[in-house]
Design a protein around this nucleic acid. Structure first.
Lengths: 336, 336
DNA sequence: TCATTCTTCCAAAACGTTTCGGAGGCTGAT
DNA sequence: ATCAGCCTCCGAAACGTTTTGGAAGAATGA
């Protein structure tokens, strides 16, 4: 492995000059620069990231913290898309990404984990329920951006999908199809995204002059099985319902199962709409109408924000990515 | 950020002693060691990976090369599971993982990409069709392990699922259900996994005294749409067929679509069996019987092998992970 | 008592890069 | 002839570790 010294020797100049030539400084003669560049190529020189990192006190590395899920889970595609977005932008900017899927071992904190790896910043997504993790990180002053988790501080921002508007689009779609009795199956009442989506649901009903009925809303912890049970009860207790809006695709699938159990034909007897647009959604029967989250962009923007922070630029405390509706075959006019 | 020097000063010893104390060398007095350790904790010391990497000439970093797929694709869960396996083992052994999803920019080679990041080794999975990439890497002498790609050389190994046995289990299952006319939809004739699975198919037919019929096998490039078309033709041309074994879950879904178009009821009129066991498979209707690949283990073992190589141990040229059959509802006795 | 061996410690070099402060030589204006 | 200013280059320090080779003192054995 050839170093900058070898080049210097071969070119008959000092290492300083080689360094400055290769890094495009203006105080080196154009001829020498070209000679140095040629020699560098001949010698198959590649700069040593590590040495550079040491002297510049920069690791050029960021971390992505995600919760681990085994065995694999349909929501995994969500994580992978975000990862792809983050990773791509990071590499464009010359940063490395390292991925944490497990919590710190041996009583250490997330922050310590980050410091050990010399991370310059960290992105967080779908961490386990103890919110402490993100808040702890936000408190350290390490540049951070949190996906779907509204912790804002000086050194941290958060990015999220426009949850309220996504919900709005779903409800508008149903209302335009002619539905008036629209149920709502939420996740956790304390989760940020749940609150936002509920807000979208309620406000859109009002906007169109439809009453909001507490008895039309249920919670199912983002779980398919629970959603199935809740839907079973709900649909029997409230026979006027002709459509249900679920806060995740998986819960929508639970509702589909419930509908099948009740002998419904979809979407004639019940319109169902989800949230996320997992790859899965297309394979349900019928294929699911759902609110699309642009996960790749979510990850990419998160990374953009993070790198701006790292490089000392001003960044907004939060960033909202638009949602869009993907209409498939699980929705239609009531009773059609 | 406190360094080893700060500790040395506080403890009244030299940096050498601090380093050796913290790294568990035997030539430091137990009392001084403890004192140093306490001070290190008080000072909230974390060792600088980068400085260490520089002097030891080790980055402790490995790479995972994967092809990028946007928009997201159902096969993504495959990649994520492998990633999880690799990542977890790597972190257990104190290695960092960096992920490459895009090909090298600006006419550079994969090998150069690896060298720039100071990688000590590389794992490859599902690279784009130009096999050149893996072979190029194998030729460089960089420690490497390739998933599902049988390139073996001194510095590289490969790991794969037991494809032939997986196929065998599928066929045995169908034969035991009473099927005698079993079609086979393959991927690419040149792909390693396709060859192996075909071998399993043919051999198992022979083993049970059933004839192998060339007219029962088709190729569909691992694509759902193509498999649908091929199945449509095949099922009409060969009405004796009661079961079809597909070399991927996605192609199996294509066959399902074809079967529905022909008005079949599944599995009464046709048994369908896939390969991979994507999370998706459970959501097909009917849920798909399929050969399960243990992707997490695949990744983990690949990483184990790689680290052994890096640390100079002898490693086998290849490693095969067992397959298993997951029976769901897309298979049953013929005509039942 | 002296030589030998352990135990415990340290100074200094090394890893490959960037950067600070300056040095020489040349040009052009005064 | 002098000076200022520019262009081009360089030596040396610095980043935070590990490691080599040895040194001082204590313990051991004869």
């Amino acid at each position: 492995m050839n170093t900058i010294k070898d080049i210097a020797k071969a070119a008959g100049v000092s290492v300083t000059t080689v360094s400055r030539a290769l890094n495009g400084y203006s105080d080196v003669n154009e001829q020498t620069r070209q000679r140095i560049q040629e020699i560098a190529e001949q010698l198959d020189y590649t700069p040593n990231h590590i040495a550079r990192g040491l002297v510049m006190n920069r690791s050029k590395t960021i971390g992505l913290l995600t919760s681990q899920s085994f065995p694999s889970n349909p929501k995994d595609t969500f994580t992978l898309d975000i990862l792809a977005g983050v990773n791509e932008y990071a590499s464009e900017r010359g940063y490395d990404l390292i991925l944490f899927q497990s919590r710190p071992a041996g009583g250490r904190t997330y922050y310590q984990m980050c410091r050990e790896r010399q991370l310059e910043g960290v992105i967080t997504q779908n961490l386990p329920h103890d919110h402490s993790a993100t808040e702890e990180l936000a408190a350290t002053g390490l540049p951070g951006v949190f996906i779907d988790n509204p912790v804002g501080s000086g050194s941290a921002s958060f990015v999220t999908t426009d949850n309220a508007d996504g919900a709005r689009q779903a409800i508008v779609h149903l209302i335009e199809l002619g539905h008036e009795h629209i149920a709502f199956i939420n996740g956790h009442h304390y989760a940020y995204v749940s609150k936002e989506r509920r807000k979208g649901y309620e406000e859109t009903l009002h906007e169109f002059g439809l009453p909001f009925r507490e008895e039309y809303v249920r919670e199912a912890a983002f779980e398919e099985k629970l959603a199935e049970q809740e839907a079973l009860e709900l649909l029997q207790a409230q026979p006027h319902i002709t459509a249900v809006f679920c806060v995740s695709d998986l819960m929508a699938h639970g509702v589909m199962r419930a509908a099948h159990q009740l002998g419904y034909t979809l979407p004639r007897d019940l319109s169902i709409i989800g949230f996320d647009d997992l790859v899965l959604a297309e394979y349900f029967s019928p294929p699911l109408t759902t609110v699309h989250q642009d996960r790749y962009t979510l990850g990419r923007k998160a990374c953009e924000l993070l790198i701006e922070k790292i490089e000392g630029k001003e960044t907004p405390a939060s960033l909202v990515i638009p949602a869009s509706l993907t209409v498939r075959e699980s929705t239609g006019p009531p009773g059609s």
